[in-house]
Design a protein around this nucleic acid. Structure first.
Lengths: 214, 214
DNA sequence: GATTAGTTTAACTGTTCGGTTAATTCGAAA
DNA sequence: TTTCGAATTAACCGAACAGTTAAACTAATC
């Protein structure tokens, strides 16, 4: 708490530190992550790390902000015009990119949620909420236009978020299940992220389509 | 490492210890959980805890086994006969019960996956795999019978698992989003677990139904 | 009521780890 | 060349925490 303490806005910490922090936070979680290890991976002295970043918590916050920035960018871009179907496909595709583009996103997000989002800054909460709202807007429009049957948008959102994050994060377990003879390769295989997103979008569209009698 | 060391199979540790451990592991994760706190919550002395349970890791393993046992029971029960549609509805309903019946399941499972399932014992991996396989069986039969369109079962499974776990674990964040004015109550509300599962099953069935021309 | 095995406890140990300190190095301005 | 602020470093500190120890307590058995 002495005079020189450039936090956050003052001068951004070196990228190497944030990258190393993301690696460590992603595979150990906040309590498990070790500052010494982050410093080592970043190639800086521990005291140097503390010089740039005030403490473990602000380092975590800065890392969170960084890992969420692709998704934030996706949500900051304007949503396209078009039919509800096209818009849903578009949303799913872009959203999936935002989540899957960095393998560290999924573990960090899942752990953060398991922590009740206790240290989630409001700006990041806002990104998550805005993605839910965008999906809600598409679904509501589709329902209003008589093309979708009513369905709770948060549930679709959670299926989407959940499946995307799990598909990233289960990779090692699926490999293990396979190598331990619990499942055949085909039983636990997943397509690449883009087709995965497209397949989900189609399932949602078919599931929501209102063109049936009943 | 002295002579008296009743581990696991020898004599099961008191329920109070396992329950306290589950509480602590669920809301702090493995590295964040404190043995002293678990002992305190369980109303036993720390050395007493170590007497019954060898160390933190075996305590965690015992807790894992316990929290997974409802799901294991669901998977151990025979799958019913019937149409693919009925069987899918049944599977989703029972599976959801297994996951949602204890609020501590979701955070523990999500954290475990975020850790690459590194300390997941094979028997628990087997439960997860068998639930995927059961779903796969239903979907494959539906496709073979010409009633479902082909779709990767693991993806459905991840949507299901993801949405169920997220619906539990996001409760505090959703409340916060609401209280901080980021979303209206209706925008982040979810039905109870049973109807949630039923809605998902219907979405899957509509999404998979093969009775369209195209 | 003495013995003994199982159980509980307070007090302690050793290590890991977040954070600090004070001295040093570096680099640009003057 | 001096100066001065920013950046770096080795060494250190204190707290939290997993795990241990040795003694005390309890209850069944003889």
């Amino acid at each position: 708490m002495n005079i020189p303490r450039p936090i956050a806005e003052t001068s951004p910490p070196p990228e190497a530190i944030l990258e190393a922090a993301l690696d460590e936070f992603a595979d150990r979680g906040y309590p498990g992550a070790r500052i010494d290890e982050i410093a080592r991976r970043a190639g800086v002295n521990k005291a140097g790390l503390y010089y740039h970043v005030g403490n473990k918590e602000t380092l975590y916050l800065l890392s969170l902000r960084r890992i969420f920035s692709p998704l934030a960018a996706v949500m900051a871009a304007p949503a396209p015009e078009g039919s509800p179907e096209e818009r849903l496909r578009f949303h799913v595709a872009r959203f999936a990119e935002g989540i899957v583009s960095d393998r560290r996103f999924a573990p960090i997000m899942l752990r953060e949620l398991a922590d009740h989002g206790a240290n989630m800054p409001k700006e990041i909460l806002a990104v998550m909420v805005s993605s839910l709202k965008r999906l809600t807007g598409v679904v509501d429009d589709g329902v209003a236009a008589g093309r979708f049957r009513p369905f709770p948008p948060p549930l679709i959102h959670f299926m989407l978020v959940g499946a995307l994050n799990l598909s990233v994060v289960t990779a090692p377990v699926r490999a293990r299940a396979e190598s331990e003879g619990l499942a055949s390769p085909a039983q636990v295989a997943l397509p690449d992220a883009a087709t995965l997103a497209a397949q989900m979008a189609e399932l949602f569209l078919n599931g929501l389509r209102a063109d049936r009698k009943e």
